[in-house]
Every structure is written in structure tokens, then in C-alpha cells.
């Protein structure tokens, strides 16, 4: 009987792990002496927009590097739709789309060449890839720029091409690291709106890392990272009531002891 109940419990746990789009369990990472991530645990529901909020240096990019298997955590486990990123990195990475903070398109190659290269890295043949590239570029009104070298595009256009690239292999979880950094207000708003639309209409899960508080929506799940530690995890309303703050900005100040994040963290 005891065993029975333990079994059901395990299978329940597994089920929960399998349904979470992303699950981190006690993940730590350090660069030499400096701890970049300290015992971080959270999980992200599928088909939701989750904001990872933290200043520059809070550990956001380290977290992304671990989730995308560029490094392995010293301790803890990371699962993408139930697949362990270290033990089962292939299947896990196939479900991940990533937009890095640094620009990662090849400036000397054309938009099409860049996108085809990415498609081939996911084993997508030229014919299918061309079709998807055409569709996606049309959707952002950039079909006419397909032959243009990336060097000739504006910052906002580069970002959008990078987002398209991350969507080419049709991932279930999209990670974006400071996707709007360095963009003007209009491009920022468009990109944010479109990513939110992706969540709503396609059921893609999104983890949106940012240091800009105004990008947090009222219904979002918010993870607050401060000096490598996760200091808050929940819906905006829950975080507000927990901290007794009126705005998410105030809540953030209370949690991290930093007064105005948008100004202090406003490096591009």
C-alpha cells in the first residue's frame, strides 16, 4: 500500500515534470569563486509568457547558457518538456528556440543564407526550409529583404530575423535573452506584442529575460533573479500581495533593494 502510494506520487511527479515547458531543480553555477546562479528552482507552464526579470549580471545569460546546453550546471537538473538537457540534450534542444542577447547572424551573408544555415543545423532540408523562410519573412513584411546582406539591416530587423530563425524548426519553448536591448521604443513594442501573440495563438511557451520592468504584463508569470538567486516566482498579483507593494516596480525594489531598475539597469 505504501509502495503503491509512493508509485503514484512518483508518476505524478514525472507527469508534472513532463508537462512543464521548462523545469530547473536546484541549479547552481559559478565562475571560479563567483557564484552566478545559486540553487535556482522554478518551472514554466506550457503556452505561457514568463518574464525573467533581473539586472545585468543577475545571472540571466548564465541561466540561458545552461538551458541551451552551452555549459552544464555544477549542481541541479534542467528539463525541457521532461527531457534532461544534459542526459538527453538532442531531443531537448530540438524543442528549444533561442534568441541570444548578442547578435548572432552572419553579417556578410544574406538573410536567406543565414536562415538556411540554421535550418540545416536542425536537419531541415532546403526545400522545406525555403518554404518556411518565405512564409515567416512574409509574416514580418521582410520578404523583399531576403537576398540582402544582414549588414544592411536595421537593429530591429536583425532582431526579427533572429526570432524567425529561432522559430524555423518549430520549437515548443522559445527563450529570448534581452531581445529588445538597443532597439527603439516602436520596435520594442512590436516585438513584444508579436511574441505575446505567438504564445496566445500557437501555444508556444516563452521565457523572456529582461531588465526592463515595463515589459512585464499584468497576467505574466514573473521570475525575479537577483545576484544569482531567485527571489520571487509567481503571477504579478501574487508577487504584489506577497511583497505588499502596489506596482511591480516597487515590488522589485523591495525584493532586491534596488530603487529604480529601469534607470540603474538601463545598459544596452
Amino acid at each position: 500500500m505504501k509502495l503503491q502510494s509512493r508509485l503514484t506520487e512518483t508518476s505524478k511527479n514525472e507527469e508534472r515534470a513532463a508537462t512543464a515547458a521548462l523545469e530547473l531543480a536546484s541549479v547552481s553555477y559559478s565562475y571560479g569563486q563567483r557564484k552566478a546562479l545559486d540553487n535556482v528552482s522554478f518551472s514554466i507552464e506550457p503556452a505561457r509568457f514568463t518574464v525573467l526579470l533581473g539586472l545585468n549580471g543577475a545571472g540571466k545569460t548564465t541561466l540561458f547558457s545552461l538551458v541551451s546546453h552551452l555549459f552544464s550546471p555544477r549542481a541541479g537538473r534542467i528539463r525541457v518538456f521532461g527531457q534532461d538537457i544534459n542526459r538527453n540534450s538532442g531531443p531537448a534542444l530540438r524543442r528549444l528556440g533561442i534568441v541570444f542577447q548578442a547578435r548572432t547572424l552572419d553579417l556578410d551573408l544574406s538573410v536567406r543564407q543565414n536562415l538556411l544555415y540554421h535550418a540545416s543545423l536542425h536537419g531541415i532540408g532546403t526545400r522545406v526550409a525555403r518554404q518556411r523562410i518565405d512564409e515567416l519573412l512574409q509574416s514580418i513584411d521582410m520578404a523583399d529583404r531576403i537576398e540582402e546582406k544582414v549588414r544592411g539591416l536595421s537593429g530591429g530587423q536583425v532582431r526579427r530575423v533572429e526570432i524567425i530563425r529561432a522559430l524555423l524548426h518549430r520549437p515548443s519553448l522559445l527563450l529570448l535573452d534581452e531581445a529588445t536591448v538597443g532597439l527603439d521604443i516602436k520596435s520594442r513594442a512590436t516585438i513584444l506584442k508579436d511574441i505575446r501573440a505567438l504564445v496566445q495563438e500557437n501555444g508556444i511557451s516563452v521565457l523572456w529575460a529582461t531588465h526592463l520592468i515595463d515589459e512585464v504584463g499584468q497576467a505574466d508569470q514573473v521570475l525575479v533573479l537577483d545576484k544569482g538567486r531567485l527571489v520571487a516566482d509567481g503571477r504579478v498579483s501574487a508577487i504584489l500581495s506577497e511583497t505588499g507593494a502596489e506596482t511591480i516596480n516597487q515590488a522589485f525594489s523591495k525584493l532586491t533593494g534596488i530603487t529604480d531598475m529601469n534607470v540603474r539597469g538601463g545598459k544596452s
Binding site: R95, I124, G125, L136, R160, R170, N202
Partner: peptide
Amino acid sequence: MTDAAGTFAGSPPERSRGFTPVQYLVCL
């Protein structure tokens, strides 16, 4: 990109499978 969702909507996330030898060649 506003109407992007329309295009994306027809593209549900793909399930993970192993790669075929052809896909290995595509990658190379």
C-alpha cells in the same frame, strides 16, 4: 509582424524524433 500570428498558427511545434542519416547530411 502583427499579422505574424496568422502564419505561425499553421505551424504547431514539432515533436522530437531522432535524426535520420539524411538529416545528418543536411547538417554537414
